[in-house]
Nucleic acid binder design. Structure first.
Lengths: 350, 350
DNA sequence: TTTAAAAAATGAACCGGTTCAAAATTCTCG
DNA sequence: CGAGAATTTTGAACCGGTTCATTTTTTAAA
């Protein structure tokens, strides 16, 4: 409106338009943009003026087509609303930005069909590579065997074996950590609210819980009450709590993630119990909310920062030297963050 | 590994490779992909076989280059971790998917410099269009006047005037709703915890609060205690609560968003007050957590669903017929959701 | 002033698809 | 069987940048 847009208001200016206006060749324009030091200052100024005048924006598509590698990185998560994945996305976005890349965020919604559709789309898009938090959790068959083209992929939060790069957190160790903490505090009837059977991460955490009980010389059949839920949200936790309170109440509850823990908390409060006096509560993930919850939540922290940065860097590296690349699997250790939901003496802030 | 990859393991197969293998011309391959009904069944079969054999994935970049419109839509939000924007992103992703598009999610982190960088990048990427939740909230100067190229943009949650398409929610009305509710319940000393001065949304909500007080024939100077915060997170709310409790305690608090409300809740609880008995509490946004909070939170709901779907559809439409397009501004009404944080009689679930 | 070397600019070919006018093939029907 | 119509197939040109061998200009040295 205010800028009269001197010339073409039809289609966005191309490099040839710029070349014509600046009275140089297209090669020179290209050089001005990509190798400014190889072009004479006077010429450069003229070209830059023309670029500004036309509002010329180089077409990235065309650029990639000629061999330049794309600066887009795909990120496929299985739940775009889960705080855990969002924090991860944030870290990844930041890391990736430092090297001039951008993230294309996609949501598989835990659906393997959608997931492979997205992978195909990202391959068609010729993205630089993909960070994939897999929806498919079949252990036997490797579902990522035949990826479209030779799309570089790094699995996120899931160890897919030696055929893939991956960064994951040791979920079994995490489960163990939680239970060891509760045992140390003297709890003997511990409930485990693990998400849906079939989600590997959650199964592993429950497995760790069992191992810890056994290592302490106790019988899981007696001291461990396992409950599975259909989802991994607050409501699911709440229902789990109701279920637990029907039988012999546990004196501690370990939840497969923080959202479940929040739900369990509500269920306990509604039943007139208090945390941690009557029941101790441990979550998993240590999302931001855990620290700020009414009763700050003890939680097994996944090192999201490391997870995200490592994964992003690994992918960029991987996609840089396409061949002669050996897949690498990194497994990070989780860490227990003790707060008041298990220990009243814990500082109010952390 | 299992697939020996007969031919080229060097660079991903191109349309000419397919044509050669199927013994047809490139045009026929293109037709097989895009207009299958115009090619003879026998030929089609041969081409499809070749495509499968080579693992051919059409290069989307090249496709776009020849004029096809991109299927990528940019989404720029100012806080990737904010539940509100994530819920919006989810809705948008879903809507956009239905028409075969994908979302490229970017985080401006409230920084206008980063924001324009992202817009330039999206323009270079030749995305179909951009949904922008603006970081720049200057009212006077229109900061989106000279967008790179003729990138179609729809402003999200912000009315940018007649020069832009936008979908927003009436924040003034929202503020009014909240206060009217509190007045109706008989509260007379109402605090308003509005975020940072300078964030328009928040300023508008506070403005609505003032209007409601005046409309009720009261004096804002007397009945309204306004507090501003430096951020819009839980911690900021908590600090605001501490500040409020130093002076004459209010009997109700209206917060600029739900996160602030959660923080205020913690501050109140820590000071030995209870909600809603001692102080009523109203949030804004009605994020998922509000319903599941320990004391379910009364909140002014932004119709995120509508916001997201409308915005996405408007953008696609806008970007379809580039010219002869008149900018449209839609303003959606907010809605009050009453829960126990203001009214004990509210049902436990909603 | 001449000449060799360095610096700058050029422009056609190319990336990998799509398009479309023209050519080749198949079908219809007198 | 042959003409005309309908259906398929073809392939060169194009999209908008980049590349790089070549040409042109400038600079430095003799």
């Amino acid at each position: 409106m205010s800028t009269p847009d001197t010339a073409t208001s039809k289609s966005p200016a191309g490099i040839r338009d710029v070349a014509a206006l600046a009275q140089v060749s297209t090669g020179t324009v290209s050089n001005t943009i990509n190798r400014p030091d190889t072009v004479h200052p006077r010429t450069r100024a003229a070209v830059e003026k023309a670029i500004a005048e036309l509002g010329f924006v180089p077409n990235q598509q065309a650029r990639v087509l000629t061999g330049a590698s794309s600066n887009v990185i795909g990120l496929v998560v299985l739940d775009i609303e889960s705080p855990f994945y969002m924090e991860a996305a944030h870290v990844i976005e930041r890391t990736v930005r430092e090297s001039g890349h951008v993230v294309m965020l996609c949501n598989s919604e835990g659906d393997t069909t959608r997931e492979s559709g997205l992978l195909a789309m990202l391959a068609a898009q010729r993205v630089r590579g993909v960070l994939l938090a897999p929806a498919s959790l079949d252990e036997d068959a490797d579902p990522y065997k035949d990826l479209p083209g030779d799309l570089p992929v790094v699995l996120l939060d899931y160890n897919g074996g030696p055929e893939h790069c991956s960064i994951s957190v040791d979920n079994v160790a995490g489960g163990r950590l939680a239970i060891e903490h509760l045992l140390q505090l003297g709890h003997t009837r511990i409930a485990v609210v693990g998400g849906p059977t079939g989600l590997r991460q959650f199964a592993d955490r429950a497995q760790g819980a069992r191992e810890a009980i056994i290592a302490a010389g106790m019988d899981p059949e007696v001291s461990l009450i396992e409950v599975s839920t259909s989802g991994i949200g607050i409501q699911d936790g709440r229902r789990a709590a109701e279920l637990l309170l029907e039988g012999d109440s546990p004196d501690a509850v370990f939840c497969g993630n923080d959202m479940l823990a929040f739900g369990v908390y509500r269920g306990l409060i509604d039943a007139g119990l208090s945390v941690p006096e009557d029941v101790a509560l441990v979550g998993y993930d240590d999302i931001d909310f855990a620290r700020d919850w009414v009763v700050p939540l003890t939680s097994v922290r996944q090192p999201i920062d490391k997870l995200g940065t490592r994964a992003a860097r690994l992918l960029i590296e991987h996609s840089a030297r396409e061949d002669s690349h050996t897949h690498r699997q990194e497994v990070l250790p989780p860490e227990l963050v003790v707060r008041r939901s298990t220990d009243l003496r814990a500082p109010a802030q952390h």
